[in-house]
């Protein structure tokens, strides 16, 4: 028996998300009194792979196969399912990010394994195997029993703390034969912005709503974000109006995020918006309407016009950063 964790890499590097996954898998392995095997797909050097051991991965299976250079959910699912069988995994941990959402359900069908998606805590119970997950877009949580022998859990990003439990990980290189008929996805073109903090990765997010009044008013919000090392986000009306790119839309149908600090500027806090940010650890609201629902979700608030508050806040941040 083992716990298997799929650790995605980004241009050969792991990030906080990868270590959260391994920490979580290690937590489950302790409950089950078993070991953790991590699976990495792609070109990742040995030094980087061994970092997974810091969080408790006992064994690392390094799959470096040119056929898997492009994410093809069918091919990835087949490779991970095969490894899961060999490792006799009883629990498979995957991120609840875009890649995880693409491959977890396919592995589920291959292995006849039930899925608990978007989990944020260790299982509540092992028998019956019960996980805790967000439902109703954050307005409720559910205790979900998974009845199958093998269980797949997808972990919500930024919801589980990194826990260092260093072990000497063994690295095993694997070059599986991938059934060519499964490789159907052809990527024609990639557009990527570099150097910006990804909204889903960010510890701090500064977000603007309709209260910003005009797309021309964004520079101070961006300046505040830069000073705090934060990512920028926006509410749905703002992205619908084209004031900001839709990638920044945070809310029920946009990005669901869980930063340590979410600063909502000129956002009233509609249910749909709260659905995307309610897992933030701290919420700061700046709004001219003292009755705005965002203040019910926030721990800290300033009642005032965004355009007047932001410059003062920027000055104050500059002061403490001196």
């Amino acid at each position: 028996m083992s716990v298997l964790v799929y650790t995605e890499n980004w241009d050969g590097k792991f990030k906080k998300l990868s270590f959260e996954l391994v920490s979580y898998a290690t937590g489950i392995a302790k409950m089950l009194n078993t070991t953790v095997t991590a699976v990495s797909i792609g070109r990742v050097d040995e030094g980087e792979l061994s970092r997974l051991g810091n969080y408790g991965a006992n064994k690392i299976i390094n799959v470096n196969n040119e056929q898997l250079a492009v994410l093809d959910s069918q091919a990835y699912a087949s490779v991970i399912s095969e490894i899961s069988g060999k490792e006799n995994a009883s629990v498979i941990v995957i991120s609840n990010n875009n890649t995880g959402k693409a491959i977890a359900p396919r592995i589920s069908v291959r292995l006849k394994a039930g899925v608990g998606s978007g989990v944020s805590r260790l299982p509540l119970n092992l028998n019956p195997f019960t996980v805790y997950k967000r439902v109703c877009s954050g307005s409720a949580f559910a205790h979900l029993v998974i009845k199958s022998d093998v269980k797949i859990l997808t972990l919500a990003q930024n919801s589980y703390d990194l826990i260092e439990t260093p072990v000497n990980a063994t690295i095993e290189n694997l070059n599986p034969v991938v059934d060519g008929s499964l490789l159907k996805t052809v990527v024609k073109n990639v557009q990527k912005q570099s150097g910006r903090i990804l909204l889903t990765d960010a510890d701090i997010v500064v977000s603007g709503g309709r209260g910003m009044k005009s797309p021309d008013n964004w520079p101070p919000l961006v300046e505040l974000a830069t000073l705090l090392g934060a990512a920028t986000a926006c509410s749905r009306p703002v992205s619908d109006e084209g004031w900001r790119p839709h990638e920044e839309h945070t809310g029920q149908t946009g990005k669901i995020i869980a930063p340590n600090l979410y600063i909502a500027v000129g956002i009233s806090g509609a249910t749909q918006h709260l659905a995307g940010i309610s897992s933030s650890k701290y919420i700061v609201a700046i709004n001219s309407d003292k009755d705005a629902p965002i203040f019910e979700a926030a721990q800290y608030g300033i009642v005032g016009d965004a355009m007047k508050v932001l410059p003062k806040l920027i000055e104050a941040v500059k002061e403490i950063k001196k």
């Binding site: 006849k112 019960t130 954050g138 307005s139 205790h143 998974i146 203040f295 926030a298």
Partner: peptide
Amino acid sequence: MTQVVEFEKPAPRAACK
């Protein structure tokens, strides 16, 4: 494969300062 056995509400947040 799965069954929800219990629902709960999120813990209420402290009042805004």
